[in-house]
Simulated scan of single mutants.
Amino acid sequence: MKVTYLKHSGFMVESRNYIYLFDYIGGNIDKAIKSDKKIYVMVSHIHDDHFSKIIFDIATKHDNVTYILSYDVVKKIKKNAVLSKMVEQLNIIRVQAHEKYKIDDIVVETLKSTDEGVAFIVSEKDGTIYHAGDLNWWHWDGEPKSWNRNMEVNFKREIDSMKGRKIDIAFVPLDPRQEEAYYMGMDYFIKNVGANEIYPMHFWGEPEIIDRYKNEYGGENIVSKAVFCK
């Protein structure tokens, strides 16, 4: 599979038969999408750093596009007359947490985010992809201990459900805003699930956090910023 970093938490993954766009909010994909492969556009949740209406422009340029959207994204679309009109002819599949969907020749499973929406596990002949969306161990110094503890429990429950699975490519948050707690979600994922290739995301224009993590905690399967960051 070929991985292209786009922006923030946005990635394009191309397998032999399909193209997947995860949380695409920007980045030039016109030159990257040259084939007539089926395209799956996947959005984990409604936040502006994960969802943009520009995803619907893809269907005006390419045939055979399927949109796999978290339930909260579909809810917003239905409430917005302009968006609703824009997508009325598109192939949209609404997904919610803790479900499995057989779509063409791929299987999409969802986990419950610790923020909004879902995380995706996509399985097909060429391998398995995990995109966390905002499923992360969010720990903030300003929150009560009970809030942070609840977040830890919820995060570990979702990640633990993947134990024993073979993940080929994983996109996992590494957020510098969490200060000294920045590493916890990534570290727990690596130690309990892991993947052949791990691509950090959600680093808010500070890709140096990737090298910091590798220097402080290791992670030989983490793809360096020099490989995929613009």
Rank of each mutant, 00 (worst) to 15 (best):
T4S: 14
S9L: 02
S9C: 05
G10S: 09
V13A: 06
V13R: 05
R16T: 12
Y18M: 07
I19S: 07
F22L: 14
Y24N: 11
G27M: 13
D30K: 12
D30E: 14
D36M: 04
K37T: 06
K38W: 05
I39D: 12
Y40T: 03
V41R: 04
V43R: 12
H45M: 11
I46Y: 14
D49I: 01
F51K: 12
K53D: 14
F56K: 12
A59N: 10
K61R: 15
K61A: 13
D63E: 11
N64H: 07
N64L: 06
N64T: 01
V65H: 14
D72P: 02
D72R: 08
V73G: 14
V73P: 11
V74F: 09
K75P: 00
S84P: 01
V87I: 15
Q89W: 10
L90I: 11
N91Y: 08
I92T: 11
I93C: 07
R94K: 15
Q96G: 08
A97K: 15
E99W: 10
Y101C: 04
V107D: 05
S113I: 03
S113H: 06
T114G: 07
T114V: 09
G117L: 10
F120H: 12
S123I: 01
S123V: 00
K125N: 07
G127H: 01
H131Q: 12
A132G: 04
G133Y: 07
D141H: 07
D141N: 09
E143M: 08
W147C: 05
W147K: 14
N148W: 10
N148Q: 13
M151D: 08
V153M: 13
F155C: 12
I159C: 06
D160Y: 08
M162D: 01
R165C: 00
R165Q: 05
D168C: 02
A170W: 02
F171Q: 11
D175W: 01
P176C: 01
A181T: 03
G185V: 01
M186W: 04
M186Y: 06
M186A: 07
M186S: 04
Y188P: 01
K191L: 15
V193G: 04
A195K: 06
E197S: 00
I198V: 03
P200E: 02
M201N: 04
E208F: 03
I210W: 02
D211M: 05
D211Q: 07
Y213V: 08
K214Q: 09
G218T: 11
V223P: 00
A226P: 00
K230T: 08
